Computed example of a mutant assay.
Amino acid sequence: MWGTRNGENGGVVCVACGQTVRRSAAREYDKEGDRWSRRGKTFEYLCKRCHRELCHQPRNELEDLLVDIEREGRQEQRDFLRRYNEIVEERYGSLEERGR
């Protein structure tokens, strides 16, 4: 039989809700989006319920977009979100345009 990995028999903590669940009842989460490159990484876990609630759409360019907004200076959340929406529409068009 295959050997067990760290945490396989014990519990892991869901980074979203804080619930401790069996490793077999959790999903690995890699914030870099590359769970297949395993060397030197420590993975976080999500319970299955929280994993289902995640948006599973590609997030290419997201981090660069957020850094661009952050470079503009500290903002209130409302202003940050407004600016995020503006940049997304500038770069990718509005949702209405993309749906055509």
Rank of each mutant, 00 (worst) to 15 (best):
M1R: 09
G3I: 03
T4P: 12
R5K: 13
R5C: 14
N6P: 05
G7C: 01
G7V: 03
E8Q: 11
N9T: 05
G10P: 00
G11F: 04
G11E: 07
V12G: 04
V12C: 02
V12T: 02
V13H: 06
V13Y: 04
V15I: 02
A16D: 08
A16Y: 01
C17H: 13
C17R: 04
G18R: 00
Q19K: 13
Q19E: 09
V21P: 07
R22W: 08
R22V: 00
R23L: 08
S24K: 09
S24F: 06
S24Q: 03
S24Y: 05
A25H: 08
A25P: 06
A26I: 01
R27L: 08
E28C: 13
Y29G: 02
K31L: 08
E32P: 13
E32W: 13
G33S: 12
G33I: 04
G33M: 12
D34N: 15
R35Q: 14
W36T: 08
S37N: 06
R38N: 09
R38H: 14
R38A: 11
G40D: 13
T42Y: 12
F43G: 05
E44S: 15
E44Y: 13
Y45H: 13
Y45F: 12
L46E: 11
C47H: 01
K48C: 06
K48I: 00
K48E: 14
C50Y: 03
C50W: 04
H51N: 11
E53G: 08
L54Q: 15
H56G: 15
H56C: 12
Q57M: 09
R59Y: 14
R59H: 08
N60L: 05
E61K: 05
E61C: 00
E61P: 07
E63N: 10
D64A: 04
D64F: 06
L65M: 03
L65I: 00
L66P: 06
L66R: 07
L66A: 05
V67P: 02
D68S: 10
D68A: 02
D68N: 06
D68L: 01
D68Y: 03
I69R: 06
E70W: 09
E70H: 14
R71F: 05
R71E: 07
E72L: 07
E72Y: 04
E72R: 08
R74A: 15
Q75S: 11
E76M: 02
E76W: 03
E76I: 00
D79C: 04
F80G: 11
F80I: 02
F80P: 10
F80D: 12
L81E: 09
R82W: 06
R82V: 00
R82Q: 10
R83E: 06
Y84I: 00
Y84T: 01
Y84F: 14
Y84V: 00
Y84H: 11
I87R: 13
V88W: 02
E89Q: 15
E89R: 06
E89V: 07
E90V: 02
R91K: 14
Y92S: 01
G93I: 01
G93D: 07
S94T: 15
L95R: 09
E96T: 01
E97R: 10
E97Q: 14
G99V: 01
R100W: 13
